[in-house]
Design a protein around this nucleic acid. Structure first.
Length: 514
RNA sequence: GGGCCCGUAGCUCAGCUAGGUAGAGCGGCGGGCUUUUAACCCGUAGGUCCCGGGUUCAAAUCCCGGCGGGCCCGCCA
């Protein structure tokens, strides 16, 4: 308040950042201009004239010439403002522009004497201004709390984050293109459900006033997509938000996006092929090659997505990668191995033990895209038992870069056995409650069983975690880095209107507000 | 649920171990500069040291409690 805000300087120069300009027509993106005029020689000016708009992210002033970095969301380019070209009146505005202001400019591509492709500005308009100072140009926005609190700045200024967000869109689009070409359709399943299911997780509970009852936020689209298969939509998928009321860490966040795919008349083998074809298609479409270099903990790893991917049964993976003999062992022996590995046993199922042992000794070592197959039946209540050994399910998980990114199986389409498995899950919950506390289990879903009773063809399905896939592909070590907006507690601060009552009064009177 | 770490100017950070006048760079503002690339040079303003309590002659610094954020373990993808 002590010194007059620069806003008043703009107003004095006839520029009101919210009243003067409502539109600015652009006719080219900076990315295109960069490509098209790369040929210019140092000092050369093109006679072509373009209209571009974006945010100023850097300013270097040199008396009667000024260089600014303009970012239009597709690329950045240097703007050259010359006093002799824009004239005295516009120069006064050039003089008060700050990093963060938004301008539309008309000018000609040129290359400076030092070889920097630029736009020589002939005319420009101020389209909006920033009221807050931007982060320092060298370190940028680095404080973790501020990055998540002011995520728009993080996404605007941190290239790694921005690239991951764009790549995520392109990967999802590639998945849709691929599935569309195979005749799949996307079906949106309910996020508010009377019974949660399709995964083992604690749900969010919320109130639906229309029916005067509590409902669950979807933990997975699975049971509804399979109802869709019953509905003769034999090739369906959904890129779905899933909500799981569990803790946050580097690989987990309570709301996340999965693509789930179901295809009738095939089994887990057909689904593994579909997955490796689809993911490799997307990787090539987005990054230009099946092989991509990923940086992990300052180490570079080349990941090769070219199909086919390796398929290794779970117990074999434990033996190969973890060097732990596990095949043919009894429940007691496996329990002992788990304890020796310092694994806390809080779930009585043998399958859980094997999963934990795998995660502890083998998972980190699996870098190249790999299907780990043949999971124990007892942790897979919606999967079809193996045709060779019903102790196992025809279930696979996808591991890339040491991260679990997906899970799929031959779907259980037998309503009698499905009912039995659900009943066993209930029993497990009740039985293990005294001994281990609440164990994650799949609740009885009779309505879903009834759908199966109308007849579901042999079907295979898969779920792939989009955030995990993207964080792995971009070498980011926190899932929160690829989630556009994560939750943060509200903090206290003053808005500009609260800090500058004179400016508030100006707009109230100018716009005839009360 | 358990453990560890962090919070100082708009931003990035130093100062804290061992209590003694709150600092730097960038950014802002003013001045100079017509080809810079973290431009440069001169000047200048800017702080509830997260909040509350305690110890002390004296607290950014030590202690306790809280709030906010991060990481790890357990659980979930």
């Amino acid at each position: 308040m002590s010194q007059r805000h620069r806003f008043w300087q703009f107003v004095a120069l006839g520029v009101d950042p919210y009243i003067t300009e409502y539109v600015f027509e652009t006719n080219e993106s900076l990315a295109k201009i960069r490509g098209k005029y790369a040929y210019l020689k140092n000092g050369e000016e093109s006679q072509d004239r373009y209209s571009v708009a974006g945010r100023i992210l850097g300013i270097r002033k040199h008396g009667k010439i000024a260089f600014m970095i303009l970012d239009d969301g597709t690329a950045q380019i240097q703007l050259v403002f010359r006093h002799d070209i824009v004239g005295e009146k516009l120069w006064k505005i050039v003089d008060i522009l700050n990093v963060g202001d938004i301008v539309g400019v008309v000018g000609r591509p040129m290359k400076t004497l030092r070889g920097e492709l630029s736009i020589l500005v002939e005319n420009f308009k101020v389209l909006a201004i920033t009221w807050r100072d931007y982060p320092e140009k060298w370190h940028g926005l680095a404080d973790a709390e501020k990055r998540y609190r002011l995520r728009y700045l993080d996404m605007m200024l941190n290239k790694k984050i921005r690239d991951a967000i764009v790549a995520m869109y392109r990967i999802e689009k590639s998945f849709r293109d691929f599935l569309d070409s195979k005749g799949f359709i996307e079906i949106h399943t309910p996020k508010l459900q009377p019974v949660y299911g399709g995964a083992l997780a604690r749900p969010f509970i919320t109130r639906m006033y229309a029916l005067n009852r509590d409902v669950y936020l979807s933990i997975a689209p699975e049971t509804y997509l399979k109802r869709s298969v019953v509905a003769n939509f034999f090739k369906v998928y959904e890129i779905a938000v899933c909500f799981r009321n569990e803790d946050i860490d580097a690989q987990h966040y309570p709301e996340f996006i999965q693509i789930e795919i179901y295809q009738a008349f095939t089994d887990w083998n057909g689904m593994m092929k579909l997955v490796e074809d689809m993911v490799s298609y997307a990787v090539k479409a987005v990054y230009g090659d099946y092989k991509i270099e990923v940086e992990k903990n300052n180490e570079k790893v080349i990941l090769n997505f070219a199909p086919p991917w390796r398929r290794i049964p779970l117990e074999e993976a434990i033996e190969i990668f973890g060097d732990v003999k596990i095949k043919g062992r009894s429940y007691e022996e496996i329990l002992k191995i788990a304890k020796e590995l310092d694994i806390k046993v809080d779930d009585p199922r043998k399958g859980k033990l094997l999963e934990k042992i795998f995660e502890k000794v083998a998972q980190q070592k699996i870098q190249q895209p790999t299907f780990i197959t043949l999971f124990p039946r007892d942790v897979s209540p919606l999967a079809r038992p193996s045709r060779e050994n019903p102790e196992y399910a025809e279930r696979f998980e996808i591991y890339i870069g040491g991260l679990e990114v997906g899970n799929g199986y031959s779907e259980l389409n037998n309503p009698i056995v499905q009912f039995h498995f659900f009943s066993k899950e209930e029993e497990l919950r009740i039985k293990s409650r005294e001994k281990f506390g609440e164990v994650e289990h799949h609740p009885m879903d009779k309505d879903y069983v009834r759908a199966l009773e109308y007849g579901m063809p042999p079907t295979a399905g898969v779920g792939i975690g989009i955030y995990r896939l993207v964080m792995m592909l971009h070498g980011l070590d926190s899932i929160k880095d690829v989630i556009p907006y994560t939750i943060v507690e509200q903090d206290e601060f003053k808005t500009i209107a609260e800090q500058h009552s004179d400016i508030l009064d100006y707009y109230i009177s100018k716009l005839k507000l009360e």
